[in-house]
Design a protein around this nucleic acid. Structure first.
Length: 448
DNA sequence: GTCAATGATTCGCC
DNA sequence: GGCGAATCATTGAC
């Protein structure tokens, strides 16, 4: 096989038309027998076209014959020209792609997280930034912090190792392909531009793999952050007292268990929201001027309670009975004492605004009274009658022969959940007091 | 370790 | 913006 360089640039391509062929023809083979040459070219093309239909041995033999053919250099040049034109037309549309916005986002995020870019404390800085962003992690969580930093540093290390591997693999593969193409250029027309294009394709492929690596790293960082910083991870069960307060309210307002914002705040205060939670909330209140956070946990609790109660009334029957009985006792007490409810001398009377004192854990009944609004509403005992009646009805029904839980659960339906699955008589939640109050009703005492 | 309970979040709807 | 519903994630009992 001849050893002349077959890269297209070395063939002096550039004449109009088919200069390679023309050159060959001018080299003494043109002019005399034009018909014979046409026949030759026709034969060569025919052989090329049918080469894939032949067996390997046959093809090899034909290939050898083609390589030795006197017209081969000219044909080779023609093919080079055609190919170059085609490749250039393809390339035209692919020049200078803009940077991928997704890749930019990933890069920015990795930089922000301290995974990409110079070390400069890397994970530590990111952990500190994350902590600052959440604002909820103090010195008491320094152990978790160091753990977080360690894990982030681990991610960073893995990311850089993998990145190096990818870059190395990319370079190796590019070199390999270039060598291969140079080798193949001996037997088929391959232009340097084509090689260049192939290299850029390889780089694009590897950069897409790199993007996957960056994506995975981002995901890992996100998971790590959620693992250490997600509020859900800080979940603590409410203490028994708080649960009882909330349950008292829920079951005593079963016909409309939608506490107003004020009621939620009041409940939140009265429940055992931890000191740190309260402090955090207070900080937020100062910073934002919003009072919604204060009752967020209460809202969550009621949201969960409503849906879980509705889903499985039977399961909550016993609990409902217990709280209903307490409230019933409360109601009975209210009825029995009648006017005394307004007496300033009565601990839970109007005179004791904000006297809802759950520190006296033995006085749940009192708590219910307060929560039902008696002590807030300045003697509007009647305003709370509806919820008391609700629970009384329930207790009376319970003692009236409902033994199976299904029947018992159905018993609740008319007073609480309607047939559509919604809460019956559920107007816009207004206050901590009975739903029978007007929509605009608010506590007279929210200073507590 | 399993599993039920439960607080918190997310999403779609109104 | 609040709610219901679904889901996640943790706790605590066993």
């Amino acid at each position: 096989m001849d050893e002349q360089p077959r890269l297209m640039h070395s063939h002096g391509v550039g004449m109009a038309g088919h200069p390679g062929l023309a050159q060959h023809m001018q080299d003494g083979t043109a002019g005399s027998d034009g018909e014979g040459r046409k026949q030759d070219i026709g034969d060569i093309l025919q052989q090329i076209m049918t080469i894939t239909d032949q067996s390997l041995d046959e093809a090899q033999a034909r290939k050898h014959a083609l390589n030795c053919h006197r017209m081969k250099p000219a044909l080779f040049n023609v093919l080079c020209e055609i190919k170059e034109k085609t490749v250039l037309s393809i390339r035209g549309a692919q020049e200078e792609e803009p940077p991928d916005p997704q890749l930019m986002r990933l890069d920015n995020m990795l930089l922000a997280e301290g995974v990409a870019g110079p070390e400069k404390g890397g994970g530590s800085a990111a952990a500190a930034a994350a902590a600052a962003a959440t604002g909820g992690i103090g010195a008491d969580n320094s152990a978790e912090h160091s753990d977080y930093r360690a894990k982030l540093s681990q991610i960073r290390q893995i990311y850089h190792t993998e990145l190096e591997k990818y870059e190395q693999a990319c370079n190796e593969f590019t070199t390999h392909v270039m060598n291969l193409l140079r080798e193949q250029s001996r037997t088929r027309p391959i232009s340097p531009k084509e090689i260049e294009r192939m290299v850029s394709i390889i780089h694009r492929k590897f950069s897409s793999i790199q993007m996957q690596l960056k994506q995975s790293t981002c995901e890992a960082v996100m998971i790590l952050r959620s693992r250490f910083l997600d509020a859900r991870r800080k979940r603590r069960n409410f203490n028994k007292q708080a649960t009882e307060i909330l349950n008292e309210y829920f079951y005593s307002h079963l016909s409309n268990p939608y506490p107003s914002e004020e009621a939620k705040e009041e409940l939140a205060k009265k429940c055992g929201i931890t000191v740190s939670q309260v402090r955090k909330i207070e900080r937020n209140l100062k910073a934002t001027g919003s009072f919604h956070l204060l009752s967020r946990q209460v809202s969550n609790w009621f949201g969960n309670k409503r849906i879980r109660y509705k889903k499985n009334i039977g399961k909550f029957q016993e609990e409902a009975n217990m709280y209903a009985a307490r409230t019933a006792v409360n109601a009975t007490s209210v009825s029995a004492h009648g006017s005394q409810a307004n007496s300033p001398s009565t601990p839970n009377s109007a005179g004791s605004a904000g006297s809802f004192n759950m520190s006296n854990s033995g006085d749940l009944f009192m708590s219910v009274q307060s929560l039902n609004g008696d002590s807030y509403q300045g003697g509007q005992v009647g305003a709370n009658i509806q919820s008391q009646v609700d629970t009384l009805r329930h207790v009376i029904s319970q003692t009236g022969g409902y033994s199976d839980s299904l029947a018992a659960s159905q018993m609740y339906s008319p007073q609480g959940i309607n047939t559509n699955g919604g809460w019956q008589d559920a107007p816009t939640p207004s206050s901590v007091t009975s739903p029978t109050e007007g929509p605009g009703s608010v506590h007279s005492d929210t200073s507590n």
